[in-house]
Amino acid sequence: MPELAVERSGSRGGGFQPAFLKAVSIAFTIFVVGYILIPIVVTLIMSFNDANMIRFPINTWSLKWYRDFLGSAQFTGALLNSLIVAIGTTIIATTSGVLAAWAFERYPIPFKNGLYLIIMLPLFMPGVVLGLGVAIAFGGINIFGFQLYGSRLLLMIAHSLWAMPLVFMLMEATFRTIDHRIVEASYDLGGKPLQTFFEIVVPSVSTGIISSALFAFVISLNEFVMALFLTDRDTQTLPVLMWLSLRSAGTPRLAVSAVILACAVFACLTVIMVWYIRQLRKTAR
């Protein structure tokens, strides 16, 4: 241990840590890693449980609850709802967020700060408040026989209240990194604004667009407070169904649901990583 400490004190960055601090930092690392991993590991273990109750220790292991999940029309239906809503949210939030961010970056806009605040404000509002507000405003609205309240469309827009500002914020930062001389060159060569946007700007910020779209997807997939207020029995999403089931009785099926939700999210992350690495290779070449 003393040799180790000496060696560390010679290295850069750790120069000020004596052995005691090193012990504290190791203990803290274990604490943080444990703290973050506990609910994840517990859920993962429980999903392979064979028993009908949530109880430790687990005696027999099986994939029983995965089969049960896939066999339950209610849960697979809710998963499908979640995916539809998340895809819809991604489309709405990414389109509106990217366009607004481009307008902000490219054009002089009057009341820029005010508009910035209007676009960003919903991101900081609690889900409970947004859900209640949308429910009050659109509770009884019926467009040509289409009941807006309880529909997936309304939930997509409600989720966009969080997803769109996030896309906007990420894309505003991304657009700032592009070389404006390329855009000017495109204009000088006779490129129209729309053509320039789709052929020059979008390809050069594709990584930013993909990442922000996937973040929008993840936000919508995981959100459940607004969804609780805005869905009915037919349109409820998986997290809402999990919340309602948790209130009545928790079974390992919920663990399976949690694992499946998390898998969808990590699949998205993998897509971002793969895309990013591919882009890096392209620029390196």
């Binding site: 609910p39 859920t43 995981n222 959100e223 459940f224 948790l246 949690a258 999210v265 992350l269």
Partner: peptide, 11 residues
Amino acid sequence: LISEISIIFGW
């Protein structure tokens, strides 16, 4: 990245 409901259920 994990849904709040999954976190609740984990704890």
